[in-house]
Computed example of a mutant assay.
Amino acid sequence: MMHKVAVTGATGWIGRYVVALLLDKGYEVHATYRQTPLATGGIWHRVNLLNGDEGVKFIKSVKPDSLIHLAWDAVPPQCYRSLANYEWTRNSMALIHHFVQCGGQRVVVAGTGAEYRWEEGLLTENSSPDSFANAYAASKNSLRIWLESYAQIAGFSAAWGRVFHLFGPHDPGNRLVASIITSLINKREAFCKFGDLNRDYIYIEDAADAFVALFESGCEGTVNIANGKPIQLKQLALQIGTLMGSEDKIIFGNEPPKEPIIIGADVGRLRDEVRWKPRFSLVEGLTRTIGWYAEQE
């Protein structure tokens, strides 16, 4: 059994839950942070992964047999145009290369649903076209293509989890669910610009659980991390309003959307090969999220 796991981006939105799950399962977890480590177990290392030398020193000192690479500047909309994407690609390659040189056997990297060219319907790992339309998508896809080739030649196991829309506590980007909840908590109107759109949302604890399941499964290649059931944003917003008793404060825009109406993820690989399914229903996830934000006030 692989037991020494390095987790980058361990203080991030997904990372904090991944670390907790791995510790519960008995792994020796070596977690990286940039500013402040979490008050959990595990062994914490202060590493600036955009300084390639620091990442190499971390790998050489720990010599993990497994690497879960979650670190990236991924808060929208800034991430789509940021030049940091190219630095993340270059330094991620160096990190993974030295991991393999030090005997590493299993790599799982966080990708994004933004890597797809968004077309109407469910997006599938091996048949839906990739997008290189912005810096974020192009950089993630470039790293993924390199990783697949490198793993095949160098002989290690690699998987790539494409994460779709997340919601839950600790959202660093004040995305739709977080913005609606915080507005309603503060007795303000909550705005949902494109209520007709259908998008694939997954609760953050479920997303982390899916990553750990992907890691343990040994499954290789790209796997969508999503719920597989797109929900209309209007229904999502009204569900939050119902749970908070403030449906009347939700305002919808009437501007026609410029994106496909329905975009979701084909979760066949996640379900059949990783053998994973969500633990939390939408209502359960929203209830937990509302409760967390209420405690922050």
Rank of each mutant, 00 (worst) to 15 (best):
A31V: 01
L122F: 11
N254G: 11
E148V: 06
V274C: 06
L49D: 08
Q235I: 04
Q152K: 14
F280L: 03
L123P: 02
K57Y: 03
H97K: 12
D196L: 07
K229H: 13
Q239G: 15
L49E: 07
M93W: 02
G285M: 05
P77H: 10
F164V: 02
A135N: 13
A213T: 11
R144P: 00
E220C: 12
A208D: 03
M2V: 13
E87S: 13
C79W: 07
G241D: 10
W160V: 09
K140D: 03
L49V: 08
V274M: 06
G218T: 03
P172Y: 09
P278D: 04
W160C: 01
E216L: 12
L67W: 13
F99A: 03
K187A: 11
E28M: 05
R199P: 06
K249W: 14
R275M: 09
N186G: 05
A31T: 01
G241H: 08
M93K: 13
M93F: 05
Y293N: 05
G285C: 06
Q232T: 09
R199A: 06
V29Y: 01
R279I: 01
G173I: 01
Y116N: 06
G111I: 00
Y27F: 15
G111L: 02
R275W: 04
G52D: 09
P77G: 10
K193E: 14
E87T: 12
Q78L: 09
P260Y: 03
P169R: 11
W146K: 06
L22P: 13
S217N: 04
G218V: 07
L214M: 06
D24S: 14
V177C: 12
N85I: 07
R46I: 00
I145T: 12
S82I: 14
D65F: 10
L23G: 14
R271P: 03
A135C: 10
P77T: 15
K57S: 14
Y17L: 11
P257N: 10
K25I: 03
G168R: 09
A31Y: 00
W146R: 07
V274S: 05
T182I: 13
A137E: 08
F252G: 12
A39E: 15
L23F: 14
H69R: 13
D171Q: 04
